[in-house]
Write a protein that binds this DNA or RNA. Structure first.
Length: 121
DNA sequence: AGCGTGACAAGGT
DNA sequence: GACCTTGCCACGC
């Protein structure tokens, strides 16, 4: 297996990605920041790349900074991610997603669902 | 131990 | 936005 430090790092990245709500998206850099690893966007990509299929991590909600899917258009991976996002109601504008509308932010979470602890329903 | 590669990003133009 | 440069670093060879 991989070294301990690396495993723990990936675990934290996966935990952060799991926090992205359904129907919303986040960028690689944003996940890195939230996981406490500023400037480690590439590591987030690496972590998702080695993700096992059976792990419950919504990898499809992670996009490039410009709001585009990281995979090359036309690949099966691109189509898979796009299909999953569309199924969650995320609308594409060409090959791009409007981050101002679908981007995840803690602030928006609070507006929509209230502060942690008051999220009944 | 280098070196190229890559699910990336920030900053400047 | 686009494009380019620089920073980043795990991984495979």
């Amino acid at each position: 297996m991989s070294p301990m430090g690396t495993d723990e790092t990936y675990r934290r990245i996966y935990a952060t990605v799991r926090a992205i709500p359904r129907g919303r998206v986040a960028t690689y850099g944003q996940i890195a920041d939230l996981a406490g690893m500023p400037r480690r966007a590439r590591l987030v990509g690496r972590a998702l790349q080695v993700l096992e299929d059976d792990q419950p991590v919504p990898w499809h909600r992670v996009l490039r900074a410009g709001g585009r899917i990281a995979f090359t258009r036309g690949t099966s991976q691109y189509r898979e991610q796009r299909a999953r996002l569309s199924e969650e109601g995320v609308v594409f504008d060409g090959d791009r997603i409007d981050l101002a509308r679908y981007g995840w932010s803690d602030a928006l979470d609070r507006i929509l669902w209230g502060p942690p602890g008051e999220r009944e329903r």
